[in-house]
Structure formats: structure tokens, C-alpha cells
């Protein structure tokens, strides 16, 4: 799908202290159909890496290669990032509107996307009328509506309470597994939660504190996983052991 090689990124490099070095020599590849978690402490540059992949900013050094061309991308932020002045359907339709998809087709696709995240019947609801978890579902529906082949999620569930987070984890996993064929949806998931990465991923990339690099690359056995089962706890233990000491 893509490969990053020797990516470096520094913020405000013109300042006297040289600014903040977010990433140094970050290299990793992601294969089609993987569910990769980028796991690391706050401020380790994992969100920066995601933004670089999305093309929202350029790296200072290094390259991001797309062997089969850059696919359509869906992006989900930590906050739902919805437009408060319009309803769920218009929010989900936004990417299609920007691509000049006819209104009727856009509405139909938005309704389908909302149904996929369990929000059937909420087309007319405004963001302020929805709970935090539901807003995040709208945000995911908006990311799915363009039928992306690569889904980038930046700590999407960090602000949610535990039950909402668990429900959304299950739904996200289902969305990824139900993709038309095994390799059609690739997910890169940024998180600072060991449990979340253990539950969702096919592979976990553990990052060092700033400047971020890959500390460990852990391939996980295929799911499904049951929370609190011995196998699951063993996976969690393996990931936690790989976290750099500074993050503990």
C-alpha cells in the first residue's frame, strides 16, 4: 500500500532552539488489507506521521512511496470535527459535495454510510443533538462515504467513555473485516492505548518518545479476539513490554 522511508519532520525550525523535532528517520511499510496500530506516548509524533501520510503536510526529509498509486483516503480526527451548522446527512455528504456528486446520489450514499455505523434514522439530527460516540460515528461515516481504500484514524476514541469506546472498537473491526474482499480496506490507527491496539490490529508499530521512530514491529495472530481471554492478555503483555521505558 505504502512505505515511509527515513521520514523526518521538525516544527518551527526557525526558532532559536531549533523548534521541536517530531520525527527522525521514521521508516515502515504497510501492506494492502492490514490493520496497523501506531502506538506510542503522547507527543511522540504519531499524529504527525498520519498527517504526512494523508498529504496534509510535507516531510522535511525522506519519502512516502505509493507503489500502486495513492488510493482514496478517509481521515478521522480525535474530535468528531463535524460542521455544527448542518445535519448528520450533510456532514457525511461533504466529501461527495466537494467532488460534485449529484445531490440525490450523495444523500443516498450518505444514508448508506450512516446505516453502516449504526445511525439509521439520524440523517436529520444536528451534531449538538448527538452524544460523543454518535458524533464519532458520523465522523467515521463521512470517512467511509467516499469508499476509501485507506482509512487513517487519529486517536478517534480517546475522548469517549469506556462503553462507547468498546462499542466503536467492535464496529470498526466489523467494518474492516466486512470490506468486500480481504485486501480492500487498509487501516492505520493511531492510539496511546495498549488494549485498543491489541484488540483491533493485525500489526502494532510501537513508537519511541519524541523524536518518533519505530521501537518495535509486532505482528499479531489473526482474530477474532476476546477481551480478558488469556490469549488477549498475552498479546497485551507483549505490546506493553515493547513500549519504551520512558513511556511507562
Amino acid at each position: 500500500m505504502l512505505s515511509l522511508s527515513a521520514i523526518s519532520k521538525r516544527f518551527s525550525p526557525t526558532r532559536k532552539e531549533g523548534g521541536t523535532e517530531a520525527l527522525r528517520d521514521l521508516s515502515f511499510g504497510v501492506a494492502d488489507g492490514e490493520f496497523v496500530s501506531l502506538l506510542g506516548p503522547s507527543g511522540c509524533g504519531k499524529s504527525t506521521a498520519l498527517r504526512l501520510i494523508a498529504g496534509l503536510m510535507p516531510p522535511d526529509a525522506g519519502t512516502i512511496a505509493w507503489p500502486n498509486g495513492k488510493p482514496p483516503i478517509g481521515f478521522v480526527f480525535q474530535d468528531a470535527t463535524l460542521m455544527p451548522w448542518t445535519d448528520a446527512q450533510s456532514n457525511v455528504r461533504l466529501p461527495l459535495d466537494l467532488q460534485h456528486v449529484p445531490r440525490a446520489e450523495g444523500n443516498a450514499r450518505a444514508a448508506t454510510a450512516l446505516a453502516r455505523v449504526g445511525l439509521c434514522g439520524f440523517e436529520r439530527a444536528y451534531p449538538r443533538e448527538l452524544s460523543g460516540g454518535m458524533k464519532m460515528r458520523v465522523s467515521i461515516a463521512r470517512a467511509l462515504v467516499t469508499r476509501p481504500r485507506l482509512l487513517l484514524l487519529d486517536e478517534p476514541f480517546a475522548a469517549l467513555d469506556e462503553p462507547a469506546r468498546a462499542a466503536l472498537n467492535d464496529d470498526l473491526l466489523r467494518l474492516w473485516q466486512d470490506a468486500p474482499d480481504q485486501k480492500s480496506l487498509t487501516v492505520i490507527f493511531v492510539t496511546h492505548s495498549v488494549g485498543e491496539s491489541a484488540y483491533l490490529s493485525s500489526r502494532v508499530l510501537v513508537m519511541t518518545p519524541r523524536p518518533g521512530r519505530i521501537a518495535a514491529d509486532i505482528a499479531l495472530p489473526p482474530g477474532p479476539r476476546r477481551r480478558l481471554s488469556p490469549e488477549f492478555l498475552e498479546i497485551e503483555r507483549r505490546i506493553a513490554a515493547a513500549l519504551p521505558a520512558a513511556a511507562a
Binding site: L56, T81, M83, L94, P95, D97, L98, Q99, T146
Partner: peptide
Amino acid sequence: DFNLVDLMRLYGASRLQILWR
């Protein structure tokens, strides 16, 4: 919202579209 503007850019929105929407 910076993220919303970034999202618009990700989907190829023009400055005019970002302004208007």
C-alpha cells in the same frame, strides 16, 4: 476548526470552497 479545514484540503477543496463551506 483547523481539522475541518484540513479535511476539506484532503478532499481537494479549493480556497473558495473552504471559505464558503
